[in-house]
Amino acid sequence: MIQLKGTNLVLRFPQVHPKAKASIEFMRTLRVPNDGNTYPLPAGLGSFELEHIEDHKAQLPEDWLKRGGVMLPMFQSEAMWISFNGTYPIALKVATGKINAITGELWTNELTDEPQNYVVLSEQPWLDGYAVEQGTVRQFVATPLGSGESAEEQITGEAAFGGIQIQAFPMKREVYKELFESPKLTDEVQQYLEIPAFLRRCSEPAMGLVPGGSIAQEIHKDEYGLDAWDLSAGSRCFIHTVNSEAWSELTDLPMPHKPISARDYKSANIPWFKYYAQDKKALPGSAILQKLKSKKEKPATKREDAEIGQNMSDLPVVKLRRSDVVTEGVF
């Protein structure tokens, strides 16, 4: 089951194992420059708000209500990364506009390993964008659905869905018991708790997502294998990304946040991050996603991009490892 707790989607599979749970948070962040360079991981500057779609059914299109799920307000200038928290291994598929963000393929309800169409929680603490090549993702950047720019429109030629889709499959109970509940592994399992995820916290109403600038991030290969996942216990959620211009009209709520500018990021001296998981193999990335065009840049954004790109060397880069102890950053 999936529940909404504050700004977290909480995944729980009590029928599989009492510990089979995780949470997913959609983090607001700066758009990294789309200038051919590959950047470190930008920090999260707060979470995107989430609302149950049924709470605003009076003003919503019928097809949105049929899909169920939650709504997420987003400015056109914003970018996002997705934060995963939890210790129980879960295979998670992530798509935008029903285009798989790991493989570039059209959405199916199946988990596949050839190619691997999911990330493994909690081995993968974050996902910042589309997996375009080994060690590099292109950032999730907002674009109005219907602009022709979204990954969905570039691949299918249609602006039918937009939003973000997730589907989660927990590890089978017997596999978990064998791998993680043997006494000698207790110390190793404990390390998963120490992934410093929160360190990074330092028109048409529908919004789509398009590949933006490049970020250094590996998508880890599944080391457990497809048989480890309980395919009978999957849960799905449709996250409707809503253009900030339509949010108040649809929900009678004010926009809960302001967009982040490159200037804000730089003036706050917020660090960038590099994440190392030396013992993990990385997926090669998707040839389909690699061919996608980026969001068209507006002149003002280009200036900001150039500014932040030129000043990258001024900003601190914090190196993180899986075994790093959690400490609160000063942002």
Partner: peptide, 9 residues
């Protein structure tokens, strides 16, 4: 008890 709904998509 409230779950996020999953519909037809």
């Amino acid at each position: 008890v409230r779950e996020v709904t999953d519909g037809d998509w």
